[in-house]
Write a protein that binds this DNA or RNA. Structure first.
Lengths: 214, 214
DNA sequence: TTTACTTTCAAACAGCTGTTTGATATGTTC
DNA sequence: GAACATATCAAACAGCTGTTTGAAAGTAAA
């Protein structure tokens, strides 16, 4: 009776091991990349047998696909669209939220690390990442930047402005091992992240304003 | 006699296999990363025995260290410093040269790819990369940007401006697999690279000018 | 030619990889 | 309780990894 209830509550034994495997996979994939991660370490961290990965997900690749999750990134965009503010302020807000997600949130950072590793060494999972996470993100930013610069700038120029913004943001993420060595005093605490986000927003809005008027 | 002469001409048999190994290593490391690359494939491409890597370079890691080369990047900076032009024009020139190196030159691109892979998955070689390539590059750009914005902006702000410029440039490089999927018509031919470099320079100079006056 | 040294080579080493197998256990349904 | 499907497990599989070894080949000086 109790167990039946637990089953209906979405926590059958099988589903629990699945969940443990997915969680361990996120940790290990983000730390070591797809190649560097071993199913044995994932299973060890999940307290599961080595065969569990292939039983539940078919293969190591199937587990990677399952481990990818973009709800946090999507939530950022829907919240931003719903906000009642000028496009300039909304861009500022988005950059801040985006950087906080990128550099501060642990679980989101694992997702980002998995994505960054796919960029450096693509597997079939990159197609899913582009389709479900990056294509919507680029489109969202294109709309937002279009509201700021108006209709005089071409589609190509607009796209490059989006690349300029995303490039600035992702730099702090993927160059972290370098920046730590160049500036050992650098820490990504909330205040520092706020300041970084403010700089990127200032830098980008000044450039966009010039584009609009020039 | 002839062979002795060849030896003095820097092409002893041993030095030739060393050179072939280093060249093959650059190709394979840049394609598959340090982990993904196998000494067997490197030796196969270099027409050398499997034991040759450990004999000539001690280990796979030793070969990686030998394969890294930053002379092209250093030449870019010294040439730029020597140029008689305003700092604004010199920044514009540097971004163009930098993007051409990043996206167009095949041998330089292999070096960049090895560096990018070190960022995503650091090995002890990252320390050498930072010390010999990236630290000088950051310092060079800090001086150049300082000439543009003047003495009113703080060191921290200045540093972030350099990050903004480098972030925009490297984005086109490390996001290439994504951009190819998002915009399949995109090709990094010399004209396109020129246009990209011009955009980054415009975008950045507009922002720097605002920083200077604001 | 003999001696000494450097370089190459096939073979083997120990260890790790993702995946499969067949048995054992667990849980559900009649 | 019997029958059935699901899930877990230890063990093995075939293949690849960087590195080592000891013999063979090549090279240079005496």
């Amino acid at each position: 009776m109790i167990k039946t209830q637990m089953t209906t509550e979405l926590t059958s034994a099988s589903e629990q091991t699945r969940a443990r495997l997915v969680d361990a996979a996120r940790e290990v994939f983000s730390q070591h990349g797809f190649q560097g991660a071993t199913v044995r370490e994932i299973c060890r961290r999940a307290d599961a047998n080595v065969a569990a990965v292939n039983y539940h997900f078919g293969s190591k690749e199937g587990l990677l696909a399952e481990a990818l999750n973009f709800t946090r990134l999507a939530a950022l965009q829907t919240a931003n669209i719903a906000a009642a503010a000028s496009p300039e302020v909304r861009l500022r807000m988005f950059i801040r939220d985006f950087m906080l997600m990128l550099l501060d949130e642990k679980s989101a950072s694992r997702q980002c690390r998995m994505m960054a590793r796919e960029l450096a060494d693509p597997t079939p999972a990159l197609d899913k990442i582009v389709r479900e996470a990056l294509a919507p993100l680029h489109e969202f930013l294109e709309h937002l930047v279009r509201e700021i610069v108006g209709d005089t700038v071409s589609e190509t120029e607009l796209r490059r402005c989006v690349f300029s913004i995303l490039g600035q943001c992702s730099f702090y993420y993927h160059s972290e091992p370098v920046l730590q060595r160049l500036h050992p005093e650098l820490r990504y605490d909330p205040d520092e992240i706020d300041a970084i986000a403010a700089h990127i927003a200032d830098f980008s809005l000044a450039a966009l304003l010039a584009k609009k008027n020039g």
